[in-house]
Design a protein around this nucleic acid. Structure first.
Lengths: 114, 114
DNA sequence: CTTAAGTGCAATCAATTAGTTGCATGATAG
DNA sequence: CTATCATGCAACTAATTGATTGCACTTAAG
């Protein structure tokens, strides 16, 4: 799972982490782990680990500011993953269309041949 | 993780599963677990479990055909996840633009006020 | 300086997960 | 019918993961 896109999908597969990511998206100035832990049902340490995972995945960036660490969202990885998905979805659509066309062609050639 | 989109991201977070998904995308007619296991480094049972996870996530559909079960790709879940990501990425872009604008406005008002 | 707030590190724990193996079941070709 | 091929089911293992707790470190505030 040391793969690049694997870490992005893994990070997003956890609801707590998705909620954190969305919290970060709402606050362009960034959030601290302690602040986020205040209205979360889990401990600060759990939040910290989630934020670090988001950072490793490229979905968040950490920056030290005095005695606090502010995490802010980063959308490059999200866009990359989104593209990965939509590329494959449309490749599938093309293949399905080609398959249906070949079925039609096959049927019409057999019809004309008989 | 019983969440809907969680299962999609979790399914895609595993490289073996992504490779299977891409194999399915290449074969509109579908593949069997046994066939896929032939050129995979893991056992048939491992493949079956991965395919079942893909199916639960909505990335694949299983259909019985005689004594074999053919799995074929399904892109609804992929498109849903892709949209989830791109929606948030663009929301972030809007917020950043608004923040930068407010910073500009604040600076110009202070400049004109002094 | 002393205190308190925010963070970092490490050990621990329960649950989940990717993988294996062995055997049972079901459908098809001779 | 029988042999065979593709699945299905179940038990088991090792590694990973989400979460906790306790304590040490650093920075700002009184």
């Amino acid at each position: 799972m040391t793969d690049d896109i694997s870490t992005v999908f893994a990070a997003l597969s956890d609801p707590t982490r998705r909620r954190l990511f969305e919290k970060l998206l709402e606050h362009p100035r960034g959030c601290t782990a302690t602040g986020l832990a205040e209205d979360a049902p889990v401990s600060r340490q759990a939040i910290v680990k989630h934020l670090q995972l988001l950072a490793v995945a490229g979905l968040a960036v950490a920056r030290r500011d005095g005695r606090e660490v502010r995490y802010r969202a980063s959308t490059d990885a999200a866009e990359h993953a989104s593209t990965w998905l939509s590329t494959r979805a449309s490749a599938w659509d093309r293949r399905i269309a080609a398959l249906e066309k070949s079925v039609r062609d096959d049927r019409s050639s057999r019809t004309s041949g008989s």
